[in-house]
């Protein structure tokens, strides 16, 4: 279950005071939220790894959270940072069903939708977003991506490179 903003904020405040039970609850809450957050935005078999990397990031940098400020925008910024890092590391993924994990129902979770990775992708040119989505998220080859988009293979590569650079610069944008 995804916890409400206020609950997460309170749990993190208690965690920072050394409450291990509150920290466990906060990490569990963050795990649920992150699974939904990354759904359809990375190959399904990689979601666990990415969630874990983000949890480690949260743990290592937990002192940077100020409990007087909203929790989810803080977590989303870290999650986006780790997601882009992961996309950069990826070459070609095996084809698989990216719909295996349910997508984010935007009417049910307005905060999550506002912070979502889709919101990030709409800020970059369509050609770059397509190239990244097809190759780094859906796991298609450069050749397939070129065929689908009508771009040359070298343009697909350039678009991936430029798109990832742009995404990294937009990591805090709404």
């Amino acid at each position: 279950m995804i916890l409400a903003e206020e609950d997460m904020r309170r749990l993190m405040a208690m965690s920072q005071r050394g409450d291990k039970q509150a920290y466990r609850a906060a990490l569990s809450g963050a795990t649920h939220w992150l699974r939904r957050f990354f759904a359809r935005r990375i190959a399904a078999h990689m979601i666990d790894d990415l969630v874990q990397e983000t949890l480690i990031g949260l743990h290592v940098k937990r002192a940077s959270y100020d409990a007087r400020r909203p929790f989810y925008p803080w977590l989303a910024a870290i999650a986006r940072y780790r997601w882009i890092d992961q996309l950069r590391k990826l070459e070609r993924l095996p084809d698989e069903d990216v719909d295996a994990v349910p997508s984010v129902p935007s009417d049910e979770e307005p905060v999550l939708a506002r912070l979502s990775l889709d919101r990030l992708l709409i800020h970059i040119p369509e050609g770059q977003a397509q190239a990244i989505t097809l190759t780094r998220i859906e796991g298609r080859s450069i050749r397939e991506a070129a065929r689908i988009t009508g771009q040359s293979e070298s343009l697909v590569k350039v678009n991936i490179h430029r798109g990832l650079k742009r995404l990294a610069a937009l990591v805090e944008s709404e």
Binding site: Q16, G18, K20, R24, L27, V51, Q52, I56, A63, S64
Partner: peptide, 23 residues
């Protein structure tokens, strides 16, 4: 490692932290 195991490890490592404030 499953997330639950990771959470166990992180909770074990966890101690009180002094939160950063912008001020």
């Amino acid at each position: 490692m499953k997330s639950e195991h990771l959470i166990d490890r992180l909770v074990e490592e966890h101690d009180a932290t002094s939160p950063m404030t912008m001020a």
